[in-house]
Design a protein around this nucleic acid. Sequence first.
RNA 1: GUGGAUGUAGUUCAGUUGGUUAGAACGCUGGAUUGUGGUUCCAGAGGUCGCCGGUUCAAAUCCGGUCUUCCACCCCA
Length: 453
Amino acid sequence: MAQKPSIPKGTRDFSPAEMVRRNYIFDTIKDVFRLYGFQPIETPAMENLSTLMGKYGEEGDKLLFKILNSGDFVSKVSDDVYNEKDSVKLTSQISEKGLRYDLTVPFARFVVQHQNEITFPFKRYQIQPVWRADRPQKGRYREFYQCDVDVIGSTSLLNEAELIQIIDKVFKRLKIETIVKINNRKILAGIAETIGEKERITDITVAIDKLEKIGLEKVNEELSAKGVSDEAIQKLQPILDLEGDTASKLGQLEEIISTSGVGVQGIEEMKTLFSYLEKMNLATNFELDLTLARGLNYYTGAIIEVKAKDVEMGSICGGGRYDDLTGIFGLKDVSGVGVSFGAERIYDVLTQLDLFPPESTETTKVLFVNFGEKEEAYCLPMLSKLRASGINAEIYPDSAKMKKQMNYANKKDIPFVVLAGESEMAAQKFTLKNMESGEQTLVTSEDLIKILS
RNA sequence: GUGGAUGUAGUUCAGUUGGUUAGAACGCUGGAUUGUGGUUCCAGAGGUCGCCGGUUCAAAUCCGGUCUUCCACCCCA
């Protein structure tokens, strides 16, 4: 072999065994989405760069994969831009398309573009790959799938509650025990306002988000480094120390941030949401987590994050409400809320906990051994009958040595093999071999269908 | 984007202070066994030692660069 072929950094091939498992996850998620009245859409892998740029912050723009214009794009670049060697300026002249970075922004574009054909509230799901030019790491790839569900055009908190029901049902079906953490951006805004650092809400939430990971001391250090006043940090401490159940936390918090209009509104929203959830009889645990911030800055209301119990892993699902996502595309006052399931991480959790159903590796149920032309002709009608009965069946395409054909069945974990040679043909029967026990029986075509059904 | 580790057969890995023809296990192919696999035995194929350059009589081994994969940070699913 000369030079081995390879694939780009951070991308992966999926083997048949992996695909069976991935499809198990996608199918489970899709089934639940449909159960709650969500409908699928797809959008192109590439979007106009103008749709994508500026939606994910400065960092996000850098992580966008850009697509080179077709044709002789260099000749169209003006001389001064070319000589300046400024990547940003040059990019805008040689690239006008990019690969999608997430599914939410393309969805917002979709809603605005098709607003007259859509009936609101619009409940859609979308399962497609997204691309980020990030440096790959454990559980982080440059190409990965997102499974988004959003409902847009309704401000009711029932939508939030229903999304949490969906989360509950998906993970119940996948047999993953989870804990759902819930917070509200308005509460975070209220906290920032109360401690007198309204403008620094992003820095404050990002720092608070790390509380569990790096500890209180480091969080305070980081806040200080970001320019938050010592006085404000002092005022923040009692909030970070809040203890007790959700109701008592909300009660205490209500008093602390009572002077903040949006803060109080956030508390009210949480109270309503939790009262819904308590009536829904969920299997998963759910709790208010004031340290939950989530990076994306378009969230304006509830924020949701799901963690798997018993596994050290980042969140496997997350989302929230965004009041004005379509505004940037010219459609005002359309509120949406959605969550995204991280398929790759769910895959890792299922692998670690050994929760994939065992039969999912079984694809073919029966293999017909090929003895030659006459035998082939004898087997083909039977093969069709089995397939017509919904039994996964195949015939070995060449009349190769027995050993080779049996080995093929073995490697593919095919549980049954049919042997039909001269004596079977004479008797108008088939020899069915159980590959696990080695047991062989001579059966009629009717019996064959019955046994394999 | 910053810092650290890594790269030898299809796979997982050995390879001495630089020294003839770079090894093992598993896997693969063939045979023992022309209609019976998973076990066993025998034989065989398979490597520009990630790539480029440098030091040296001599480089898988030392040096520089580059790429890959992995880990941490930033950020995120």
